[in-house]
Nucleic acid binder design. Sequence first.
RNA 1: GGGCGAUUAGCUCAGUUGGGAGAGCAUCGCCCUUACAAGGCGAGGGUCACUGGUUCAAGCCCAGUAUCGCCCA
Length: 925
Amino acid sequence: MHSFIHLYTLMEKTYNPEQIEAKYRSLWEDKNLFSSDSNSTSENAYCIMLPPPNVTGSLHMGHAFQHTIMDVLTRYHRGKGEQTLWQPGTDHAGIATQMVVERQLAAQDITRHDVGREKFIDKIWDWKEQSGGTITSQMRRLGTSVDWERERFTMDDGLSDAVHKVFIQLYNEGLIYRGKRLVNWDPVLHTAVSDLEVISTEEQGSLWHMRYPITGTDEVMVVATTRPETMLGDSAVAVHPDDERYTHLIGQTIDLPLTDRKIAIIADDYVDMEFGTGCVKITPAHDFNDYEMGQRHDLDIINILTDDAKINDTVTSAYTGMDRFDARKQMVKDLDEQGLLEKIEPHTLMVPRGDRTHSVIEPYMTDQWFVKVAPLAKPAIDAVKNGDIRFIPENWNKTYYNWMDNIQDWCISRQIWWGHRIPAWYDNDGNIFVADSLEDAQAQAGEGVTLRQDDDVLDTWFSSALWPFSTLGWPEQTPQLSRFYPTNVLVTGFDIIFFWVARMIMFGLKFAGDVPFKDIYITGLIKDGQGQKMSKSKGNVLDPIDLIDGISLDDLLVKRTQGMMQPKMAAKIKKQTQGEFPDGIPSFGTDALRFTFAALASFGRDIKFDLKRVEGYRNFCNKLWNASRFVLMKLEGDSIDAKATLSTSDEWILSRLQATKANVEKHLEDYRLDLMSQELYEFVWHDYCDWYLELSKPLLADDATKAGTQATLLKVLNEILTLLHPIIPFITEEIYEQCCTLTGKDSESLMTQAYPKVEQNLISPQAEEEVKWLQTFILGIRQIRGEMNIPPSKPLPCFVQNTNDSDQRCLNTHSQVLNSLAKLESIDQLNINDEAPESATALVGEMKVLIPLAGLIDKDQEAARLNKEIEKLNKQRVQFAGKLNNEKFVSGAPEAVVNKEKEKLASVENAIADLSTQLEKIAKL
RNA sequence: GGGCGAUUAGCUCAGUUGGGAGAGCAUCGCCCUUACAAGGCGAGGGUCACUGGUUCAAGCCCAGUAUCGCCCA
């Protein structure tokens, strides 16, 4: 028992998220409460690796969503007393970041080549210093409780060492090799990109039908192509071996138009006889399928393009130096003039574009570095198959297998400057020395040999793939590595399963000797209200910070349309935005946004983001705020007796609380944050606020029950705060502090409070039963009021009839509560034979609750209401009776089910009988 | 073409061992009741996409159809 030391400072009537959030953001960090050193003696460790966002990026809705999920999990485990590390950091994002700086240079009309490699890289570092704090400060706004002291960057020294070590080992084991292969070439960036960085979309194009003359005859073969310019590099024409139209031509040659070359006519069952004319031109140097076929048939590989995707001079032609698309036009024209163009059909085709530049990607022969993936993939597939790693939701493992089973070697070299430079040196004879440093390479090559380092850098995802162990200090065997690896869960979107997740699994198993994480929680993708992907070009992007702080329509319009190239598009976006947010966006506060994200975190693929939801959860925060205000007001000036006798209502809310805790626990275990937040929402709003706080009012007015109620109000509020804290940390922390001030409790932070456990001894079926009775009683009366439009302020007299022992007990105990909550002026008992006044009726089990009409209630109206009620019950009766009359059901279903059905029927029949009698009475009047 | 997913109230979505269809928002009444009008109380609203099957019993399991969407080729 402790008494209050100061008078409770009155809380504002409406909560103000802005003030609260600012207060705790710095406070938590100042007190080092996110540190992974806390709870270091705990038996359990818990670790989440933050998927490192682009260092120069900014926080978008997807980040905010996933960060909320991770923060809920982190704060929950921290609250359970586990040593918890949420590892933050950022990614250097090679191409993306380099492009930003190149664009800045372009504005001054210079290229990176004008600047030179070293200076250019310095410029990028400068840019990183300048803008690198954006995303981390936005994360702080969200309240993400990462261990900031352990923040890492993929190009930190330690992480770079890990990259070297991995590269060298893979090379030495023959799992990294260099070779000339057909790769996806971005002609704007002048670099190879991986398959994953190429986005193919349907575009309107043409199918050109070209006549290829057969050598020495008047015959032609008509080949159809979507890229006529590649004909310069044709090595053959292929037909299907079973295609009788062309069997006689197999083995003959074609005089390739616009060139002086002859190419073979070959047969291959890859050819689709139905498509076009059934004849396919084969260009091994510029098409992946053709390349395969070229390998099968030992065809020439004729590269016709330059790095800029202009026609080169390999093939003597009139098109050398022309851009491929200009050459296309010219060649089509020339073919037409020579009578070699059969027709042009409109055609939708899949056009591959770079995910960064959106330029058309060309398959292109170049020297590149590759990871031989198959040997690494095998154990990575097994890890999921044998359950070491679990996808959540489970069906993503199919997507994973699908990709892993058909995995291609990974092109890891990029012809850009920003990134980890490939640790390989060449001598003048082209010998390769892979080493940690020039010195090591020199040692390998021998004194006096001139070495030149490879110009390329590694794919960004190469270093990201090491993230789960490189951030923990690998290759050193650090205490953190042994404590936190393997990590518990990876939270990420399905869009990077291939880019990142699969590669982390492969490298984790290979180098850290274990899976990098046990669970992979694949979240949905946040879409706009119409289900559209949010993108700058669509102008439908929402900035999480704008939802927190609010934004005026004007500012939002500027934000969404600035930098728009097409004024038409800008106008459209403007209109759309005005329609959707006529008054801009109000400020909802971080907690409301976080609650929304948690509530949206179901297992669906797409999450349509609806502002109305945020508003609803903002209201929830306000509700919680005001409920707390109420509790504190009712506690003020008194001392709390934790051992005071409890009323049934107290026992009831405590019992409900236990069920809530159990469910929250379960939902968290299942990663169902939507169900978790729903559970808490319902408990707080509907059990605690709607019922318990109302019940507490008469109980607080009674000295016999006051102390117990006060203790219970506070206990439940405190646990609510702790339970909600992982989702809405700011408001709960503030209320907690107010509670501490009031009760004189000395506590550092809600964050360090133990997460409440289920207390079995507080589960009380009897209290739940009794309050259920109370609720039914009150609801019955409210319904009569509601339907008869009797104001809630009007006190009503009430009679009860046909009571049993337990009804009597309840009436004795709870009459005061009933009077208060149902606003009754009296409750009088009638014997079963007593003549009741003309009344509206409600049923509580077998007991009748009667509200005399007495001029207040229209009898026709009551008759109509009863009729409706009876009709409803009748529908149920028919359903239950139908089942029970079914012999097969009675004999086939388990006895318990049949009995339950019988009970339901009996209860419905009773109710119908009671209400019908009442209806008759009323009708007679 | 292959794989995956979706289809439940006007809207957004829950519904996990098969056993009386739910929430939030929106709508319609009544209420400014001393925690909260960002609120309270009450009400209306569904052939669970369609067809068939398994079962005593199907929103849920199975097969197929339709529409929409995503991923891979």
